[in-house]
Design a protein around this nucleic acid. Structure first.
Lengths: 209, 209
DNA sequence: GATTGAGTCATACGTTCGTTTCATTCAAAC
DNA sequence: GTTTGAATGAAACGAACGTATGACTCAATC
C-alpha cells in the first residue's frame, strides 16, 4: 500500500497519542516524531495544536454522527413513532460499530471519544459543529414522543446516560482487559448488554415528583 | 475562623485547580499563588506535584467510600437480600451527597472525581487503593444475589454503567450549566432521576442469549 | 531552462514548567 | 542567651513546551 501523505500521517499519529495521553499530555514533537514528519508540519498543515485536535475529533465523530442520523431516518421512514428500544439501538449502535472491541483502531477510538468528551483542556472540546447538535436534537424529539410525560430535563438526563454508559464501557474494556474480552463475540455481547440496559433505563416511567 | 495552615491551604487550592483544569493543566505555581504560599511549599509538604495530587484524591474519595460501605452495612443488617433499588441508592447516593450541585465545594468535588477517574495523566489515575476495590466487590456480590440468572460478565457491565451515569452526569452539569441547574432542587432532582434510571436498568432481566 | 509554489527541513525564540538550593525567620528547648 | 529545627522565602536550574522563521527541495508550469 502506498504510504499516506504527511497530513494523514500526522492525523493518525495525533489520534493515537491524544487518545492515550490526552491533549495536554501530548506534545507536537511527539506527534511529528511518531508520524515521521517535521516539527513544523503541524503548523503548516493545521495552523496550531488546537486546530489539529479539532481535525482529529471531527474525523472520528463524523462517521458516527452520520450513522446515527441515517439510523433515525430509517426508523422514521417506517413509522413516525418508533419504540424506545429501536431508538436506543439506532443511537447507541453506531458507537459500537465505530469502535469495535476486536481491533486496535477501535480501542484507540473509544479512548479518544472519552478524551473528546471529558478532557479538562478546553481545546479538546471546542470543536463541535452544528451537525452534532442537530442529530442530538432530533433524537431528543423522537424520545420525547416515545416517552410522553417525561419532563425535558429528565429526558436530557437520560440521554446523557446513554452516552455515558457506551463511552465508559468501551473505555474500561481496554484499560483493564479481562480474559476473553476483545473477541468479536465479546464485542457483540457488550453491544446487546448495552441495548438491554439502556432500553430498560430509558423506558421506565418518569420519576414521581 | 482561624486561617488554616499552609498545608491545608495548598490542598484546598490544588483541589480547586485540579478539578477545573485537570492535572496537567494545573501548575504548581498556580496552586501556590492561589494558596498564598511560596512555590517551594509544595515540594516541602508533599514532595512533588504527583504526590500532592494523590493527597488531594485521597481526601476526596475517602468519605465517599466510607459512606458506600456504611450504607451497605446498614442494608445487610436489615436483610441478607436487599432489593436492587436500595442497593442502587446505597451505592450511587454517596456520589451525590459528596458532590451536591448546590454548593461551590460540591461542584469542585464532582469535577475532581471525574478528573480522578478519567484524567489521561498517569499520575492522576493509578492511585486507588485496596479499600476502593473491596467496596466494589462487596456490592458486586450483593447485586449478584439480588439478580440471579445474570452472568458475572453482564453484571460487571451493569455496575460500570452505574459509575458512568453518575460521574458523567455530574461532569456535564458543570461543563455546560443550563439555567436553573446548580440549585439545591436541581441537585436533588438529578439524584432521584439517577436512582430511577439506574434501578430500572439494573433490574431488567438478563439479555437473552 | 527559468519560474513558481506547495511542502519539508533545521533551527531558534520566548515562555513556562517542576524541582532544587540556600538563606532567613521564629518559636520552642535547653 | 544560645541552640535547634520546622517552616518559609527569593532565586535560579535545566528541560520541555508551542510557535515562528527562513532556507532548501522538487515536480509542475511556462
Amino acid at each position: 500500500m502506498a504510504t499516506p501523505d504527511t497530513r494523514t500521517q500526522i492525523l493518525d499519529a495525533a489520534e493515537h497519542l491524544f487518545a492515550e495521553h490526552g491533549y495536554r499530555g501530548t506534545s507536537v514533537r511527539a506527534i511529528t516524531k511518531l508520524a515521521g514528519a517535521n516539527l513544523a508540519a503541524v503548523g503548516y498543515h493545521f495552523g496550531s495544536k488546537a486546530e489539529l485536535m479539532a481535525a482529529v475529533a471531527r474525523r472520528v465523530i463524523e462517521p458516527i454522527n452520520a450513522a446515527q442520523c441515517a439510523g433515525l431516518d430509517t426508523l422514521l421512514a417506517r413509522t413516525p413513532d418508533p419504540p424506545v428500544s429501536e431508538l436506543v439501538e439506532a443511537f447507541a449502535g453506531p458507537l459500537f460499530d465505530e469502535m469495535p472491541a476486536d481491533d486496535e483502531g477501535g480501542a484507540r477510538t473509544s479512548r479518544l471519544i472519552v478524551t473528546i468528551l471529558s478532557d479538562p483542556a478546553e481545546e479538546a472540546r471546542n470543536w463541535t459543529g452544528p451537525a452534532e447538535d442537530s442529530v442530538r436534537e432530533r433524537y431528543l424529539a423522537a424520545f420525547a414522543r416515545a416517552l410522553p410525560g417525561l419532563s425535558p430535563q429528565e429526558l436530557r438526563f437520560r440521554m446523557r446516560g446513554i452516552l455515558a454508559v457506551t463511552a465508559v464501557d468501551r473505555l474500561e474494556v481496554h484499560q483493564q482487559p479481562s480474559p476473553g474480552c476483545g473477541s468479536p463475540a465479546a464485542g457483540e455481547a457488550a453491544r446487546r448488554w448495552a441495548i438491554t440496559f439502556l432500553t430498560a433505563a430509558m423506558s421506565t416511567p418518569p420519576t414521581r415528583t
